[in-house]
Nucleic acid binder design. Structure first.
Lengths: 152, 152
DNA sequence: TGTGGAGTGATAATGATTATCATTTAAACA
DNA sequence: TGTTTAAATGATAATCATTATCACTCCACA
């Protein structure tokens, strides 16, 4: 019986093969983490995740791997505004992000209307569009509740 | 006869007064630069501009002033993806940006449909929206032409 | 005209990212 | 299944944008 935890690694390995990226244990773990988790992890979280799962890894490799995956349009980089930490997200399906300015929690939003935005941009500027990113900043439900309590 | 160049400084001074921000020469020049120029300058460009115009200034003051203006929602910070340099833009009227991945030129796009995006985000996530930013990456007309030439 | 709080600026500290380079490894080919 | 080689890894140092520190300056107001 195959361990359940192995499947994501296989899925990641197949994705790497599909994109003709050389297969290494580090790359498999990093990509599988991004493919399965919805926490939009930071570099540090990814680094810790890989080590916790029993693989050796250095920060340099995490940076290199993420850049490689970005270059292949498999993942995107999100600039969470406070603290200057980048966050990363598997993004084969286009979507955008809502970011809590209080706790930095990031949630996905799926909406295909971004295409109209891109068309508007082409019309007004003549740029050739490659990709786009939309980020909404606000307060997540949890932080709304917390801040309400503090106020009275 | 009043020098033409003085008007932007007065406009900036008035804006500072309107927002109850203490008026200093450095702040006037920085804000007037952002209000009149459309080049979405970096910290370095702002620093040089202020000195070129005959005012003393330090990097610390540029950073402090920009943060102050951001806190008052007078300007916004744009993450131009290559090189990690932040760019700044006067943004009393909401708009979004198209960024050339080759030469980093940033152009404004005005389109009020962003409100629908924000509503969609609220519906899907329950976040309370504070503001949002939309960035389109692509090639500006100049770079499209340059790259076409190189190819054959 | 003296005083206090805010603003400025030279400099140091921080910390995320990038570069370096010796060592190890994946995978193409014999 | 070896062998070979270009690519990947990882420890470390270097870089550089941003932030913090703190002495000094400048006004607003008494």
């Amino acid at each position: 019986m195959m361990a359940e935890e192995q499947k994501p690694l296989l899925a990641a390995a197949n994705k790497l093969k599909e994109f003709k990226i050389k297969n290494t244990p580090q790359r498999q773990v990093i990509l599988s983490y991004l493919m399965t988790s919805h926490e939009h992890p930071s570099i540090e979280m990814i680094f810790n995740y890989v080590r916790k799962n029993g693989f050796s890894v250095s920060l340099a490799t995490v940076y290199n791997t993420l850049q490689l995956l970005i270059d292949h349009n498999l993942i995107i980089e999100i600039a969470s505004d406070s603290g200057g930490h980048m966050r990363y997200d598997y993004a084969e399906v286009p979507h955008y992000h809502v970011i809590c300015v209080n706790c930095n929690k990031i949630v996905d939003v799926f909406d295909s209307h971004y295409k109209e935005f891109e068309q508007q941009a082409v019309k007004q500027t003549g740029y050739q569009v490659l990709n786009s990113q939309y980020e909404v900043y606000g307060l997540c439900p949890d932080c709304q509740a917390k801040l309400k309590k503090k106020q009275f």
